[in-house]
Amino acid sequence: MCKILEAVVGPRIAPEELRENRLRYATPTILFMLARVLLLISVFLPYWHMELEAPQYPKGLFLTAYVNHLSGDVREIDGLNHYIGMRPLGEAAAFERAAGVWMVIAMFLLVEGAAFIHSKWAVLLAVPAIAFPIVFVADLYFWMRTFGLNLNPDAPLSASVKPFVPTVIGEGGIGQFKTYAEMGTGYWLAVGCAVLTIAGFVFHRRAYKPLMERMNAEMRKAVA
């Protein structure tokens, strides 16, 4: 039992080795730490923007998605959407928004855990943070698609606006509106977190793989 735990957590570093190669072992820890900081900051910043332009809205309409809420002209956009039979935006991704901050905290703790595990299994703990940006975009697309394709056929403008898939990134259009969508600062911080986590793992393996191999060799020797 203890052996299995040791195999998963990996060997500890000898004090003299740590003194000699401090940076070698500090690098992955620092990268993981930076990744966690970026992820934490991202919670307060927008992940996604959409701007809607139409002649009668010279200042534009704005929609901004955070990990846990929507802001901007939600009320007006919902008001307009009711003409084409789209459900209110507040009904989209309700679970994701409710769980968003907790998920980020979980990823934060998992990446923190990855710094303490010296075996290759550490990557498992880092996977959520690495996959998060992709999952976010996929989820956004899923909801846009679901809302766009499921319009109420009894809506006033159902004859002129047919079900459609709104554009998640880049330029799109619906009715007299032009839409411009792009990922926000928070999202790019999450991407930065993923990149730093991958980098951290590269240095993690560089530092701990030799230790693991030595430990495994010793274990084999002991078994033999």
Binding site: L23, M183, W188, L189
Partner: peptide, 30 residues
């Protein structure tokens, strides 16, 4: 080498975020 790589990673990771997205989308819109 590790130091350089570390630096590169940090720059790519954070700068990517700050440059790729404007601080204020509303101004971008205008």
């Amino acid at each position: 080498r590790g130091r350089k790589a570390l630096l590169a990673m940090i720059v790519s990771g954070t700068a990517l975020g700050w440059f790729a997205s404007p601080a204020d989308a509303q101004q971008e819109g205008r």
